[in-house]
């Protein structure tokens, strides 16, 4: 039994159950309610997912701190102050300082701007490529679909981190080469998802109706099919940000991503490595890593919540 029919059957059972419980009052109850859009419906659903809400709150706090923090803190992320070097966390430096006396809090926040920006930009690149390729493959079908899916197979069979390292090494590490290298290795899942949605959606009556009134292919794809295929794309994009941040951090941690003096979370961990292991300056590694961890886990919770909220087959729609 396919997923879709399983869902239908359960949904049907649910309606029957309702009818049994409430008798004829069910239809009139529904007519009293204001019609709800997909988005407000999804939000109502999302709000019930407590961990997702907590994730959203944490994520919002991190974004806010990263944007406003460096402006409010009286230190410069690159200012060297040897009088305060290698200080453990104190009131003046809540995350301590490094061996050059640079304030770690302001560096973590400043680095966070880069890490988060990379995450967003990578997902933008990956989603553009993935949606475009998936849409073309699914809508066109035939040999176009076949050829594009073989390209997806090739990209899927490449060991991601190795290729990313090679690309960044070849192109030289800067913001855009890192973003494009990461993006080029992260679009395949989206392409497959979008293709699958398009394959089933393009056979539906509403697409046929649009075609019958003379809508162009571009219009059908952009106005009729894509909006209906949006839910899995949104979930994939959300989780993709976490993956991209993690990949950038790994790259910078290996010393192959962003170069000094620019701080990113991964870069700070790389700089911290020797000091943590040999000098025991735990704060150097703890805080940048904690930021990565909190960001990733928040995004994962939000992604989980979105998946439930946007799933049209879910049972509770109240």
């Amino acid at each position: 039994m396919s997923e879709a029919t399983k869902g239908d059957r359960l949904e049907g059972a649910h309606v029957l159950e309702q009818a049994r419980l409430h008798g004829p009052s069910v239809p009139s109850l529904a007519s009293h309610e204001r019609p709800r859009s997909l988005w407000s419906d999804a939000w109502r659903q999302f709000r019930r997912h407590r961990l997702a809400l907590a994730g959203l709150f944490t994520l919002a706090s991190i974004v806010l701190a990263v944007i406003a923090g460096p402006e409010l803190i009286p230190y410069d992320p690159e200012r060297i102050d040897f009088r305060a070097k290698s200080s453990p966390p104190t009131l003046a430096h809540p995350m301590g300082t490094d061996e050059l006396g640079r304030d770690q809090l302001v560096r973590v926040l400043d680095g966070g701007r880069v890490s988060l920006a990379v995450g967003l930009a990578v997902v933008l690149v990956a989603m553009s490529v993935g949606v475009a390729i998936g849409a073309i493959a699914g809508y066109a079908g035939g040999w176009v679909d076949n050829a594009l899916m073989r390209v997806v197979d090739v990209f899927y069979s490449m060991p991601g981190l190795f290729v990313i390292i090679l690309l960044v090494t070849l192109l030289g590490p800067n913001f855009w080469t890192i973003v494009i290298s990461l993006g080029l290795l992260r679009w395949m899942t989206t392409a497959r998802l979008v293709r699958a949605s398009f394959l089933s959606l393009k056979e539906q009556e509403f697409v046929e109706a649009a075609r019958a009134i003379g809508a162009s292919n571009v219009r059908i794809v952009l106005r009729h099919i894509l909006p209906n295929a949006l839910s899995p794309i949104i979930v994939a994009a959300t989780l993709g940000i976490a993956g991209a941040i993690l990949a950038e951090s790994a790259l910078s941690f290996l010393g192959l991503g962003f170069q000094p003096p620019q701080a990113t979370w991964g870069r700070m961990l790389e700089e911290a490595q020797k000091m943590v292991i040999h000098e025991g300056h735990w704060w150097r590694g703890f805080f940048p890593g904690l930021m990565i961890f909190l960001t990733i886990i928040s995004i994962n919770f939000v992604g989980d919540g979105l998946r439930d909220a946007l799933d049209p087959r879910r049972l509770e729609r109240s």
Partner: peptide, 28 residues
């Protein structure tokens, strides 16, 4: 859930702090 979200290099660094620097049990 924590395990899939934790960056492996951070975990490694913190383990090194605890088991190599602080306790001296394991080589780095």
């Amino acid at each position: 859930f924590l395990g899939v979200s934790i960056p492996s290099f951070w975990l490694a660094l913190m383990l090194l702090y605890v088991f190599t620097f602080t306790l001296g049990w394991l080589p780095s």
